[in-house]
Design a protein around this nucleic acid. Structure first.
Lengths: 196, 196, 196, 196
DNA sequence: CATTAACCGAGACGGTACGTCCCGTCTTAAG
DNA sequence: CTTAAGACGGGACGTACCGTCTCGGTTAATG
């Protein structure tokens, strides 16, 4: 590792910026969010913001990654039904909590190629990979038909999730999560999840 | 009706604006698209643009609606499989052709409440309605199980479509359209589409 | 002349900008003067300032030129002594009134080549030309020795004036103007000015 | 004297800073000169610069003082003409050599009150004092008329010199120095300098 | 056929955010 | 205690677009 020289980066400034970005997007929406406002609310100079992030979306991506780090579930109960149910309920809950940030990031990813790359690779791919893994383990256990591609299943699940995040139709509630689990079960040909 | 007085609206200016907006978004992307650039490229004053559209997204929405007016298919072959196949192939083809515009509109819909409303109501709902109708007619013919909600099927189809439009994974090709048709068939419990 | 098209330039904005620049330099000094502050005090957008002037010094130069337009004296009494006295008293008075602006412009002229050119050509050269003319007319009348170069006399006079403007020594009062007139008379070998 | 403790001041850093300041002002001009650039070119941290000088002008003033220390002439030949000629030739030569620095300092002195004070008291007053002394000694010898104020003569000489430094008109060459000497001789009523 | 109302181009206007630069200060570790 | 390194809060820079406005001119339907 290279020796640290000079004044160390301010952790408090970093946290204040992430918090300010999240607070302002919740209050005013992504369209009204500006780098200047983030700096102002964080009590920080614009230069400090630009030193570490190239855009407001990059700030939100870091805030999201940090906030979602612990919350990432990786169920492995031994049954596809319960795994799916747990994963989807948790994921939908997280998506509802961070809906504005997620919608903003997907929106910005359409305009900013570099951000889109980072968003898809760092954030989306890992989450989709977890779901693929769940299906693949079920396939290894012989729970699903041989023609099922785990990646296709994961794509369909996240497509449905994102459609709701982006406001296509309906809400992000438990009903939606469980219905989606049922749909996936039906597609894979496995037996259903337990109903509580 | 009120009698028209004064100089009539210039149809050539209107067309030039729509064309310029589409040309510039293809060339530079939506992020670099500005009202001033549209006016400049259309050889038109800014005022003329603002007189008829409130935002660049509104221009794109009109361009899209106009371009897609004829292309809207409404197959009714009497079999769910062929209806789905025709509808999805045509829709996917149109989505690929207008991918940048669609992505831009969905992106902007996240920021602009009024535009989002118009986009969803005018554009998305009608297209989703066509697909719901296809499924509903199949249900009336007894092709699908009674538990199937045509709106849910349509939602899932458009979710998958939008996921690809927004760059989630994979391309918008015929393979995708046919695979999606298969998936929907499987979910509804109907018999498959004919393979050419 | 080219036909005027578009919204005409706002004369009131122009005047407000000139007035604001002069007011702020008197209040805070040239060092604290910024384009943003000028715009703010003039109740004008920054763009409007930048549209017409490239720098704060250019604004001051225009304000000075406009203010000094009427005040430019061109005495021709038929006697070198009285011509000099009138010219120098008036010029010194004007210099004292605009001392901060003049010092600022000479200061900025050292940093900005283009401004220096404009300042010297538009402002300084014309004023020095008036004095040269006074001496030249006296030479034509035979009042001064043949070896005297009117331009050298004018240079010396403005050198002395600028030295005081820039704070070298002493004040810009009538005593200084009359003493300078005496010095020039002595150098040209002409007879002195009348003492009141 | 207080005993020195801790790491001593780096003489090499001090010299590097002065040299960098002079080099950069010659290369880019005073307008483009910044504290950061001086530190960068001197291979020194900004803090080291700020610890010893309050501004870039202060650095230039020290560089000028150091460079001009040896070059300060104080002729006393016993004749006003030769004294003036020697003093002015030497002074004009030095002014030409350091023209950019001198112009920059005079420029900055208009903006920075403290620097202006230091510049005038430390640098200008001493040089003007030497010239006053030359004239005063000539007066003591009876070479000049009783009405002549040595300080006025010195002011006029330096006014002419600064007018050329600041780009008013003409060059800083020997012709100018000798012509100025002649003018002063004529004003004091003394006999001229020897022509080589 | 003149009037009149709405359109059109051009372009200046007040305003806001952009991303950069430099200011002068600070906080480290190293000497 | 000085030094190199470099992050910090602050603030002006000059630019780009925003959406509005004010011009002179144009183009039909109306009176």
């Amino acid at each position: 590792v290279t020796a640290k020289r000079g004044r160390p980066r301010s952790e408090s400034a970093r946290r204040a910026i992430l918090a300010a970005a999240v607070a302002r997007i919740e209050a005013e929406g992504y369209g009204a969010l500006t780098m200047e406002e983030i700096a102002r609310h964080a009590g920080v100079s614009k230069q400090t913001v630009y030193r570490w992030w190239p855009s407001k979306a990059a700030i939100l991506l870091e805030a999201l990654t940090e906030g979602a780090a612990a919350a990432a579930p990786q169920p492995d109960t031994g049954a596809l039904g319960t795994d799916l149910q747990q994963f989807l309920r948790s994921t939908v809950r997280g998506a509802r909590r961070n809906q504005r940030i997620l919608a903003a990031l997907m929106s910005e990813a359409q305009l900013d190629e570099a951000l889109g790359q980072a968003f898809r690779d760092q954030f989306l791919a890992t989450r989709r990979g977890v779901l693929s893994g769940i299906v693949r383990r079920a396939a290894d256990r012989g729970e699903v038909g041989g023609a099922v591609d785990p990646d296709d299943v994961a794509e369909l699940a996240f497509a449905a999730l994102w459609y709701r995040i982006l406001g296509g139709r309906g809400r992000l509630d438990r009903r939606f999560a469980d219905g989606l689990a049922d749909t996936l079960i039906k597609l894979t040909g496995a037996s259903g999840a337990p109903r509580p």
